[in-house]
């Protein structure tokens, strides 16, 4: 559906995005991950047409993407803000019209979403009178008001209470079931594990990991370990085997970067091993492991 073909973006001497390629299928929720300053926002801005790539091409449904295609895109930017002095409903109407919605279609969609988010009584209130969390919901509505085929959500959950997080998640899944494609960018790994089928982890403008979440986890399964032990562990040497580890109540978890046997030989000399198991790593562990070893 959308395909990034080796796109790059340079700002003066900085390479923000360095030959990134991936493809997203229709109806997918694609997780775009990476530490701060990895180049996620720049990549998103290029997909949204806010910035032009310096190299490479973005393909939409088989052709080079153009502005008309992007009218069917929805976007929730990470940096948020709205017209504070304007009324909720009028702001929605303005952006809906800008995206070419007819008056009738626009009004019925607005009513639908206002009701869904319990905003019906606030329709004529000024944005500045809404709480921060509510303003964020308004921006979420803005991203999908015009029934886009492709929606980019940059940190949609931050600042929302658990009830609203669930509401958002439900809506994202409903939309996905109707065939809407999502790019979901966040630092909250548990949300990615819950929602995404495919992920792409980038750092310093380059792709570190890309592919289906299940396969990524499978690949790391052999490396992720959980060890219960007794005795004192020399943590300085431990970093040689597991760069980023967690130690809690005599339980060690982390992702190995050396063969398992080497690690066990070393460990056996240090402490008494009570149990040892390969575990499925969390995405958070994979993220930390990859970003740290790339650094």
């Amino acid at each position: 559906m959308i395909q990034l073909q080796s796109i790059s973006k340079y700002f003066e001497e900085v390479t923000a995005v360095d030959h990134i390629s991936f493809e997203i299928e229709k109806g997918d929720i694609y997780g775009l991950l990476g530490p701060n300053g990895a180049g996620k926002t720049t990549a998103i801005r290029m997909m949204m047409g806010i910035l032009e790539p310096d190299e490479g091409e973005i393909i939409w449904n088989g052709h080079s993407i153009n502005r008309e295609d992007r009218v069917n895109f929805g976007y929730l930017p990470e940096e948020r803000g709205l017209y504070q002095k304007q009324k909720l409903k009028e702001t929605l109407q303005y952006l809906g019209r800008l995206r070419g919605m007819s008056r009738k279609e626009l009004n019925s969609e607005i009513d639908k979403w206002l009701e869904r988010f319990d905003f019906t009584d606030s329709a004529d209130r000024k944005i500045e009178e809404l709480s921060k969390g509510n303003q964020q919901k308004v921006q979420f509505i803005l991203a999908l008001l015009h029934q886009p085929e492709f929606i980019i959500l940059d940190e949609p959950f931050t600042g929302l209470d658990p009830i609203n997080q669930v509401l958002l998640k439900d809506i994202i899944q409903e939309q996905r079931d109707e065939g809407v494609t999502f790019i979901f960018s966040t630092h909250q790994m548990e949300q990615v594990e819950r929602l995404c089928t495919n992920i792409c982890l980038i750092n310093k403008g380059r792709i570190l990991i890309e592919g289906p979440l299940s396969k990524v986890k499978e690949k790391y399964r052999k490396h992720a370990v959980t060890v219960k032990y007794e005795g004192d562990l020399n943590t300085g040497d431990l970093e040689h085997f597991i760069p980023e580890f967690q130690l809690e109540n005599g339980e060690l978890t982390g992702v190995l970067k050396t063969p398992t046997t080497d690690f066990l030989d070393w460990l056996n000399k240090q402490v008494e091993i009570i149990s040892f198991a390969h575990s499925t790593p969390t995405l958070e562990q994979i993220f930390i492991q990859e970003v740290c070893s790339a650094a």
Partner: peptide, 17 residues
């Protein structure tokens, strides 16, 4: 300046040039 500081410009620029 307002649209730049409230970042509406990002949403606008994804729709209009």
């Amino acid at each position: 300046i307002e649209e730049r500081t409230n970042r509406m410009v990002e949403i606008l620029l994804s729709t209009v040039s």
